[in-house]
Computed example of a mutant assay.
Amino acid sequence: MMERSGGSYGRILVRLCVGLTAVVVLVLLFAGIDYPWNWRVSLQYRELFIRGFYNTLVVSVGAIVLGFILGVLGGLARVSRNIVASEVATLYVELFRGTPLLVQIYIFYFCIAAAVHLDNPKVIGIVTLAFFSGAYISEMVRAGIESIDKGQLEAAKSTGLSDRQTMRYIVFPQALRRIIPPVTGQFVSLIKDSSLLSIISVRELTKAAEVINATTYKTFEAYLPLAGLYLLITYPLSYLTQRLEAKMDSRSR
């Protein structure tokens, strides 16, 4: 326990040193630029950043939850013995993985949303991001399930468990532990991809920075805080996921 605690403190210290070094290097680089810095602009338009941060957080959380549900369902359908479910899931994965997210946003906003009379860019953005990320998560779930040793399936059946019980109690919990790192990476990418929703007038972080830049012509003061705010969302997600993965590993031992 003491050794693990010491290792954790060591990692934190190394990260702080690396982070401070990166900050110093950036400051030195920016010091050589002939640019009239004015950080009061960022403070003056802080309400735009706060509103954009909130909207980005809402859109990201909604898309993560819905995307994970779609991904799990799609992954289970991909390995299902039901031909219809398997083929529908395959079509869904290939369609959303094979087309750019920007094109999907346009189609959802200008075609599908108009057909169902939905005029809420934030909801449309959540749904689009969820379907996009769900396609990638589906493949991760499928790969995680198929990576489980077949001998465990045979052992579960020999004890009288049904296929559904085997999947629920034996296969899926193990697959879930294995897909945590790639799924977390997908969630982080999803948060950053939410910046594309500015094209359909969702007032998220990137849109806020664009408005500030267009109004004040202060590019650095608009986009440097933007990068920091995105990091403020993505880093806690990565950290919490690492803790969850470590906790699940310790329980499985």
Rank of each mutant, 00 (worst) to 15 (best):
V123G: 05
Y106R: 02
P100I: 14
I112P: 04
R97H: 02
L101H: 12
Y92T: 07
P121S: 12
L101W: 04
L102I: 15
P121K: 11
V93E: 05
A113H: 09
L95K: 01
F96Y: 12
L101K: 11
P100H: 13
A114I: 12
L95C: 04
F110P: 05
P121G: 10
V123H: 07
H117Q: 11
K122P: 00
A113S: 14
Y92H: 05
E94T: 01
R97F: 07
A113V: 04
K122N: 10
A115R: 10
L118D: 01
T99A: 12
C111V: 14
K122C: 06
A113Q: 08
C111T: 09
T99R: 07
F108M: 15
T99S: 13
A113E: 08
V93G: 03
K122H: 09
F110M: 10
I107W: 15
Y106K: 04
V123L: 15
A114Q: 15
I107K: 02
N120A: 13
A114K: 15
V123Q: 09
P121V: 08
R97I: 03
V116F: 13
G98E: 02
H117P: 00
F96N: 06
P121L: 10
L95M: 06
Y109D: 02
V93H: 08
Q104R: 11
F108L: 12
K122D: 06
A115D: 04
L95V: 12
T99D: 07
C111A: 12
V93D: 02
Y92K: 06
L91S: 02
G98S: 03
V116T: 00
A115W: 13
C111I: 13
Y109L: 04
C111W: 11
Y92D: 01
G98W: 07
D119K: 15
V93P: 01
F110K: 06
N120G: 01
D119P: 03
N120Y: 07
C111E: 02
C111M: 12
Y106T: 10
L118C: 02
E94N: 04
P100S: 14
L91Y: 00
F108A: 14
N120W: 11
A114C: 05
Y106M: 13
I107D: 01
K122W: 06
L101F: 15
Y92A: 03
P121M: 10
I107G: 00
F110N: 05
A113M: 11
L91Q: 00
Y106E: 01
G98L: 05
H117Y: 09
L101N: 13
P121A: 11
V123R: 06
A114R: 15
L118F: 08
N120M: 08
F96M: 08
V123P: 06
F96H: 09
V103M: 12
L101I: 13
F110W: 12
T99Q: 10
G98R: 03
Y109F: 14
F108D: 08
Y109R: 04
N120L: 10
A113F: 09
T99G: 07
H117W: 08
F108N: 11
Y92G: 00
Y92C: 01
V116I: 07
T99Y: 07
